[in-house]
């Protein structure tokens, strides 16, 4: 069965979406991600959508759900690389993904996750390599 690959980078998971996903594929990705977070004890999830030329309300809602579910499992999600045309369209559609953190690219997204919140740093969880 067709699947979106999930890469593990140290304590982060990286998903690069490059195809126009049909709904079932997107839902499979959500399931897979949750299992991977549990299995790898990942602290953060990066979803790279720089290659996507469309995010509709279905995919938008799914991304929002991923972020909320991951948070419950103690992992932060950062959505990276949204194209301007996609961002304008999403806002016009009425979806602002308030609960999702964002970054310009994967590199900045990683930085954001590594910085973490002050509380995490204090408890020594923040990152493995500096």
């Amino acid at each position: 069965m067709e699947r979106i690959p999930i890469l593990k980078l140290h304590d982060l998971l990286l998903v690069t979406i490059q195809v126009d996903m049909h709904d079932r594929l997107a839902m499979t990705l959500q399931d897979d991600l949750m299992h991977q977070i549990r299995r790898t004890r990942a602290r953060g999830v990066l979803i790279d959508i720089s290659a996507l030329d469309l995010v509709d309300s279905f995919i938008g809602r799914l991304i929002g759900e991923i972020a909320s579910m991951a948070r419950v499992m103690d992992a932060e999600t950062v959505l990276v690389g949204m194209q301007p045309a996609v961002a304008i369209t999403l806002v016009e559609l009425g979806l602002s993904l308030g609960g999702v953190r964002t970054a310009l690219n994967v590199e900045r997204g990683m930085q954001l996750l590594r910085e973490g919140s002050p509380e995490e740093e204090a408890s020594g969880h923040a990152s493995i390599d500096h």
Partner: peptide
């Protein structure tokens, strides 16, 4: 334009769904 393309494609996706 790219923005308008994205808008109509997104609208089509919503309505077809």
């Amino acid at each position: 334009s790219l923005v308008n393309q994205t808008k109509i494609v997104t609208a089509a996706s919503e309505l077809a769904r």
